[in-house]
Design a protein around this nucleic acid. Structure first.
Lengths: 212, 212
DNA sequence: GTCTATATCCGGATAGAC
DNA sequence: GTCTATCCGGATATAGAC
């Protein structure tokens, strides 16, 4: 008698807390990456948080760089989905504000850095495969920023001098840098930077939205 | 017979290459910090570069955090001296361009990050004494930026909307973030960001200066 | 001041039982 | 899939000779 379809499915793992361990590892690693950097977190940190053992993590991610690459891939996929979900918005300024919000959320959530900031800073101290992946992520964000800025200027909802390519770098750099500065000088600095960006791009400062 | 004045001077150490070892350690550590981050460099890295042994570094800096603090103190002293040397410049835009140049030099010199970017990123993973010192450094730079922006607007050499406090954060964040982005997306990105800042602050883009 | 030698600990990684 | 046990290398740090 052939096996039933159910038996052919991947075996249901003895799931702790009813969640997927691999995902939980990624979630914990993501927070550690954005708070401590790649070289300052260990499998042990993750293991303690999840109440599992070191070796269990190695089962899911044989080497640490595998975990690192998986993290960046997930950022890329997430950004791609987010970008698609935003494509419907007619107003480029609305899109940009939604993008700002993801950074505001980082700030609110334990004053985390953004992935680009961490990986850029540690660039000389991360494995080559992670560098390649990080470059891809940065390129995808950059292209979206340029397109959005161009759209906004064309429709009259955004205003800036010079080329969209250049303004995009300023925008990305400011968000990234301001998160780091907020850790040294307080969260208010980040909000000041965002207000100033809004002022320059639209001529006015919107009400400050609370993060989710 | 009393000791001669010469004998009372600190004993001349057997100097390798005719330089001061402590300074050389700081120089090597500084480059490692800005390229790899605090947690990704070791005494061994420094020892190899200087052709000395691990233990020799511990003689000058008993614990790694002592080295870290000394590094940031040196940044602070250097910035203070630089600030004083710039005080004579009448034009605030000239001062700002001189400040930009220090970042351009970081870029040219092995694509280094700036100290604030590194310490902000690793903030949760550095010793408390280093955090305190890093906060001081950031505050001193911030205050200088604000004063310079206000001076520039008053004399008409700089132009920006809103408050100088807010524009100062944008300026600092952009420089810091753009150095990191340059590592991921190429040095041209950094120059684009600087051109855009100049365009917004003065209405035109100056010739691109080569770094020293 | 710098060396050799060593202590100690930690992080990444693997083997094999369950 | 997760565990225990273990190996290995690297990093901080100290003791004591020169």
């Amino acid at each position: 008698m052939p096996k039933s379809p159910v038996e052919l499915l991947p075996r249901r793992r003895s799931l702790r807390l009813g969640r997927d361990t691999r995902e939980e590892i990624l979630n914990a690693a993501e927070e550690l990456l954005q708070r401590r950097g790649y070289n300052a977190f260990s499998y042990h940190h993750i293991a303690v948080r999840l109440g599992i053992r070191n070796a269990a993590i190695h089962y899911h991610f044989p080497a640490k760089e595998d975990l690192g690459v998986a993290l960046i891939r997930r950022y890329r996929e997430r950004f791609d989905e987010w970008r698609q979900s935003m494509a419907g918005l007619a107003d480029a300024w609305d899109k940009l504000q939604a993008y700002f919000k993801t950074y505001r959320d980082y700030l609110q959530d334990q004053c985390k850095c953004c992935p680009g900031g961490v990986l850029g800073t540690e660039f000389d101290a991360i494995p080559q495969v992670m560098r390649d992946e990080a470059r891809q992520l940065m390129r995808e964000i950059y292209e979206w920023l340029i397109a959005t800025l161009e759209q906004g200027r064309a429709q009259g909802t955004l205003c800036f001098k010079g080329r969209a390519e250049d303004e995009a770098v300023v925008l990305g750099s400011t968000l990234q840098g301001a998160l780091q500065i907020a850790r040294l000088a307080g969260p208010e600095r980040f909000h000041q930077a965002l207000d100033q960006l809004a002022l320059e791009l639209t001529g006015r400062v919107p009400e400050r939205q609370a993060a989710a």
